Each structure stands twice: as structure tokens, then as C-alpha cells.
Amino acid sequence: MTMLIGFLDHLSAVPAPTSSVIPASDQSPGSGTPVWVTLLVGLAGALLASAGAFAGAWRSSRALRQNTERTLEHERTRLLNERFGTAAALLGHNEAACRLAGVHAMAGLADDWAERRQTCIDVLCAYLRMPYPRGLAEDTPADEDSTGQANREVRLTVIRTIRDHLLPATPPETSWSGYDLDFTGAVFDGGDFSNARFSGGKVRFTGATFSGGLVSFYGATFSGGSVGFYGATFSGSEVLFRGAAFSSDVVNFRGATFSSGSVNFRGATLSSGSVHFDRAKFSGGEVGFYGATFSSGKVSFYGAKFSGGSVKFEDVTFASGAVNFDRAKFSGATVTFHRARFDGGVVDMRDVTTWSRPPSFDDGLLTAPPAGLLLPSPLPRPKP
């Protein structure tokens, strides 16, 4: 018994063995954090550091690119302004050859500088508005007045250059259709606007003088925007609107004077919008609407004075729309409507002021007018 008690005491004195724990494969030694979490945190830190570096580099690159673009745009603008100054100086040169170079330089600049295209066009139009002494015949020999002929050539070149930028075949990126054209007070003793498209924008011939030579608007199209010949004077030129199409919101010949020469609207189409000859004065020369078509829209001759020359509406078709002669004065001009066709349109003469030399119609129309012809009632007798 004594030996047994001693053995048990010996066992209790021996220290217990330390337990050996093998760490799991997904845990870091000496820690409770899994290895994959540690790796993920390290990877995220690396990615964030890389993203920060990339963002900084991107911002620096963008700032550099924007600064470069600003520098290039500034340089481009500076060069374009220099070209503008050079072209303007050439246009003001004493030598006609230099002015011709200036016309082409300004037109080329307008093509390259869309932001300032209207300004370049304004300069060319302003050249035509400059004082221009008249008195030269179109066939004046160059050796008799070389300066005058040279001036005329520069002006015709300006008109031709503008026309070339208004043609249907002009590429859209260099077309001047839709821009404002201001010829207010300009003198035209020739010029070719044939087949030009005056579409949109404002086209002003206000107070312009057509005083010689041939000015052609043959086949031109006036659509959208407004076209004004307000107070223009047609006195000696042959002005052709043959085959032209008027479909603008407003085409305005208000207060225009037709005193000599000829204005020809043969085959023209006046449709939609309104065309105004209000208070126009027909005192000489010939204005012809041969074969023209008045379709839809409104044409007004309110208060117009027909005192001389001839105005011919022969072979005209009045198809829908209305032509109004309210307060008009037929006092001396030869106004004819021979072979006119009233196909749904209305020609209203019920409120004319003077009938001393009335318009001439085909036989029987005054006594039995068609539905579209509205005459004064009772019909006044012509005064001798």
C-alpha cells in the first residue's frame, strides 16, 4: 500500500506534456486570419495604388492634351486672323490686280474659317456697296477708261465668286446658302447670279440700282428666309429672273421703281409665301411675266402705279393663291393679260384707285370675266 501511494505521488509531480497544434492550411501561423484574406488585402492595395498612379497619369495626359489643343487653336486663330488682314488689305489696294487677289483670298478664307464665314461674306458684300461712279458703257474701250473697266471687273468677280458658292453643286461644307447677303444700296451694271440658291438667311438688295448691262438671276431659287428689293431702282439694266423660283417666306419689291430697261420674269414660278410689289412704280421700260406661274401664296400690287412703259402678264397661269391690285393706279402704262389662264387662282382688281388706262384682256373677258378675275363693279369707264 505504501508503495502504491508513493507511485501515485510521483505521477502527479510529472508535468503534463504540451499539446502540439498543427495550423490549418488556410490560416497564417500565429494568427487567426485566413491566408486568402491576407493575399486579397495585399492585392487590393496594389490595385488601388496602381489605379491612383493611372488616374494621376491620365489627368496629367488630359491636361497636356487640352493645353496642346488650346495652343494649336490659338495658333490657328492667329494665322486665320493674319490671312483676314492680308485679304482685307488687298481689297483696299489701289491696283485692281491686287484687289482681284483680295477677292479670291477672302473667299478662300471664308471656306476655311466656318466660324467667321459670315464676316468674310460681309466684307465682299461691303465691297459692292462702296461708292461706284457710273457712266461707263459696257462696251467702253479699255484704253479710254482703263481704271473704270478695271473697277468693274473686280466687282463682277465679287458677284461671280458669291454666285459660285451658291450653286447647287457647291459642297455643303463650303456653301454660302443660308448666310446673309447684304447688297443694300449697291450699284449693279452687270453680274451673273444664274442658278444661285438663295435659301434661308436674309438677302437684301434694298435701295440697289440696276443701271446698265445684264444682271442675270436666270434659274435662281429664292426659298426660305427673306429676299428684299425694297426701293430698288431698275433703270437701264436688262435684269433676268427668267425661270426663277420664288418660294421664300417673303420676296419684297415694295417701293421699287421700274423706269427703263427691262425686267424679265419669263417662266418664273411664284409659289407659297408672299411676293410684294406694293407701291412699286412702273414708269418706263418693260416688265414681263411671260408664261410665269402664280401658284399658291400671295402676290400683292397694293398701291402700285402703272404710269408708263409696259407690264405684260401674257400667257401667265394663275393657279391657286391670290394676286391683289388693291389701290393700284392704271394711268398710262400698257398692262396686258392676253392669253392668261385662271386655273383656280384669283386676280382681284375690285378696289383699284385709277382706271384711266385699264389693263387689256382677251376679247370678252371684261364683259364676262372668268371666276378667278374680280373686276371693279360697276366697271369704271376709262378716262380719255
Rank of each mutant, 00 (worst) to 15 (best):
E138N: 11
V352E: 08
D26I: 00
R117I: 09
F222G: 01
V275W: 00
Q66P: 00
L373W: 07
T354H: 13
G273D: 02
A319N: 11
R341T: 13
A244L: 06
Y179Q: 05
L374I: 14
V316I: 04
F277P: 07
S377N: 15
T206Q: 12
V239R: 07
T2E: 14
G284Q: 12
S216V: 03
R116Q: 15
D111V: 04
A96Q: 12
G102F: 13
R76L: 15
T157W: 00
V275S: 01
A220F: 04
L374P: 05
F241P: 05
R65A: 14
L80W: 14
F205S: 08
G6R: 13
G213D: 03
G224N: 03
R160Q: 12
A13K: 14
H93L: 02
E82M: 10
D348S: 02
G213Y: 05
S360D: 11
V311T: 06
E69F: 02
F246G: 08
S377Y: 14
E286C: 08
S177C: 06
D343I: 04
S320G: 04
T77G: 12
P34R: 04
P133V: 06
A244G: 05
F7N: 01
F301S: 02
R381Q: 13
H93T: 09
D111T: 01
V21L: 09
R242L: 10
A304T: 06
S283A: 13
F318S: 01
D180H: 08
G219N: 07
D26W: 03
R197S: 12
D112C: 09
C98M: 13
R99F: 07
R163Y: 06
S247T: 12
I121S: 06
T119A: 13
S377T: 15
R134K: 11
E82R: 15
T317H: 03
T68Q: 12
V323T: 12
S211T: 14
F217R: 05
A16V: 15
R204M: 05
A101V: 04
F289D: 11
A371V: 10
S28G: 00
V299G: 01
E82I: 06
S226L: 09
D143Q: 02
C98N: 09
V37C: 01
A101K: 08
H104M: 11
A63P: 00
F84S: 14
P168A: 07
A88W: 07
A304K: 02
W58M: 07
I121N: 03
S300D: 04
P23V: 03
F265K: 05
L128W: 03
A114S: 15
V158T: 01
L47D: 00
T77Y: 09
C125V: 07
L48S: 09
A107T: 09
G225Q: 08
L8P: 00
V14I: 15
S247E: 09
P369R: 11
E138T: 13
T71Q: 12
F7M: 07
D143H: 07
S320N: 06
A292Y: 05
L166I: 08
A110F: 08
G285I: 11
Q118M: 11
G92W: 03
V158W: 04
V103P: 10
